[in-house]
Amino acid sequence: MVGHSEGATIGLLAALRAPVAAYVSIAGPAQPAAAVLRRQLAGRLPPELAAQSEAALAALEAGRLATDVPPALMALYRPSVQPYLISWFRHTPADSIARLQRPCLVVQGDTDIQVGLADAQALKAAQPACELAVIAGMNHVLKAVPADPARQIASYGDPTLPLADALAPALLRFVAAATAPR
């Protein structure tokens, strides 16, 4: 089971329930999603919009639908996605990975501006049996991009950029070892 970013949490929850051979988290957060959103939005919204975002996050964390979402925040908190957010916000990936009893690999790029190395280290600390692969120069969309903000943003929409060179070998090595006959 392999999951990336938000999908790493979903994949982890599935791996706890399904008979999978191994689990891989790629750029997966360690904290609940609401905390990740707060961190990602910190300092990026005007004060009034930041307060409205916090009100929406607080409502969703409490299991309530957020009302009066301003148009500027609709991409994050539109009514159709709120039930999913309520469900997603209930999970703390570090707590979940601590219960995992399968081979696991935590992969993290060191130029990721969305999910940082601290998250990968927290997942590894929560489940010491996990392997940790830090991919030098890999960003959140798995491409080799320096930490420069302008180049990071540009990389998200550039399909010509290849995957970071070290990603596939790390995944292949882990999967081969985790699925080898014993």
Score class of each variant (00 low, 15 high):
2 V>G: 12
2 V>C: 12
2 V>D: 01
3 G>R: 07
3 G>M: 11
4 H>E: 05
4 H>A: 09
5 S>C: 10
8 A>P: 11
10 I>V: 14
11 G>E: 08
13 L>Q: 13
13 L>S: 05
13 L>D: 03
14 A>S: 09
14 A>K: 10
14 A>F: 15
14 A>Q: 08
17 R>P: 02
17 R>N: 13
17 R>H: 12
18 A>F: 15
19 P>L: 04
23 Y>N: 01
25 S>H: 05
25 S>K: 03
26 I>M: 14
27 A>K: 05
32 P>D: 07
33 A>S: 03
37 L>Q: 15
39 R>Y: 08
39 R>H: 12
42 A>S: 14
42 A>T: 07
42 A>G: 02
43 G>T: 06
43 G>V: 08
43 G>C: 06
44 R>E: 13
44 R>S: 12
45 L>K: 06
45 L>A: 07
46 P>H: 13
46 P>Q: 10
48 E>L: 13
51 A>Q: 14
56 A>S: 14
57 L>V: 09
59 A>K: 13
61 E>I: 06
61 E>F: 00
62 A>K: 11
63 G>H: 05
65 L>K: 11
65 L>H: 07
69 V>W: 13
70 P>Y: 02
71 P>S: 12
72 A>L: 05
73 L>E: 10
76 L>R: 04
78 R>M: 06
79 P>Y: 10
80 S>G: 13
82 Q>G: 02
82 Q>H: 08
83 P>S: 05
84 Y>N: 04
86 I>V: 11
88 W>T: 01
88 W>P: 00
88 W>M: 04
89 F>Q: 02
89 F>E: 03
90 R>C: 04
90 R>H: 03
92 T>F: 10
92 T>S: 06
95 D>R: 13
98 A>V: 04
98 A>T: 02
99 R>K: 14
100 L>K: 01
102 R>P: 00
104 C>D: 01
108 Q>K: 04
110 D>Q: 05
111 T>Y: 06
112 D>H: 06
112 D>V: 12
114 Q>M: 10
119 D>I: 10
123 L>D: 13
124 K>P: 01
125 A>V: 02
127 Q>N: 15
127 Q>R: 13
132 L>M: 10
133 A>I: 12
135 I>H: 10
136 A>W: 08
137 G>F: 14
140 H>K: 06
140 H>P: 00
140 H>A: 13
141 V>L: 12
145 V>Y: 11
147 A>S: 15
149 P>I: 00
149 P>D: 00
152 Q>T: 13
152 Q>K: 05
153 I>R: 15
154 A>C: 11
156 Y>M: 12
156 Y>I: 14
156 Y>G: 06
157 G>K: 12
158 D>V: 10
158 D>T: 09
159 P>N: 10
161 L>T: 09
163 L>V: 14
163 L>Q: 10
164 A>R: 09
165 D>G: 15
166 A>G: 15
168 A>C: 01
168 A>S: 09
171 L>H: 09
173 R>P: 08
174 F>S: 01
175 V>M: 08
175 V>E: 04
176 A>H: 12
176 A>L: 09
177 A>Y: 00
178 A>E: 01
180 A>K: 11
181 P>K: 15
181 P>W: 15
